[in-house]
Design a protein around this nucleic acid. Structure first.
Lengths: 102, 102
DNA sequence: TAAACATATGAATATCCATTCATGTGAACA
DNA sequence: TGTTCACATGAATGGATATTCATATGTTTA
């Protein structure tokens, strides 16, 4: 097994803003403005990052009037988040950690 | 669920050299020199990246005489690679793709 | 214990990319 | 149809980090 450009896929998870966006969508789909408010990032920055996440189909988007609703591509993304969470829980207690309810 | 520094964990997978190192170890554990040869990267670069991978316990290491053998922390890492492979197979046919047998 | 082999490390730099700013596009509603 | 709301985009830049180079550390063997 060899890798060509899977790095592009993983790169989406390796940035604080994008991870914040991803986790903000775990509960339910949100509009851009809702993501902006929930993650407390600039709107243009959020849009830039959303574009990358959609490109790798980590997120799906759908227009609703003026708004654009983004959702997690749960079928394949949840297992990755689960697996990553499991790793950090077992190995990275206080270093690289995903925390609940903060 | 909110994220603190899981980005550091994922960052390990988001670099070509580190991904090459990781996949070079899927089949079996290897020494540094073997990884250098298999991935065709500079020895010092490989060492730098190995350090990061070990820090997040993505790899484990064990000294054998002069050599140091690195192995995948398979219990938790395999599921992540599997899940990522599954995502790219289903969604990123020609873009962000993990390919088998080069 | 000196030499050879194997790996690690620090500093320098070169590259990449997240973020910001300014502005553009698109949809709705008065 | 012009104004407001919602989101996207291009260019510029500042900061992070991969890579390289030179050298250090650690391990074995002659």
């Amino acid at each position: 097994m060899n890798i060509h450009s899977c790095e592009h896929f993983f790169k989406n998870f390796s940035d604080r803003t994008r991870l914040a966006i991803i986790t903000s969508l775990i509960e339910k789909p949100l509009s851009v403005n809702e993501i902006v408010e929930k993650t407390r990032n600039e709107q243009s920055n959020v849009s830039h990052q959303l574009k990358k996440l959609v490109h790798c189909k980590i997120l799906l988007s759908e227009r609703q009037g003026k708004r654009k609703i983004y959702s997690l591509n749960n079928k394949t993304i949840s297992p990755i988040l689960e697996a990553a969470f499991n790793h950090t829980k077992m190995n990275c207690q206080n270093t690289c950690n995903i925390q609940k309810n903060d």
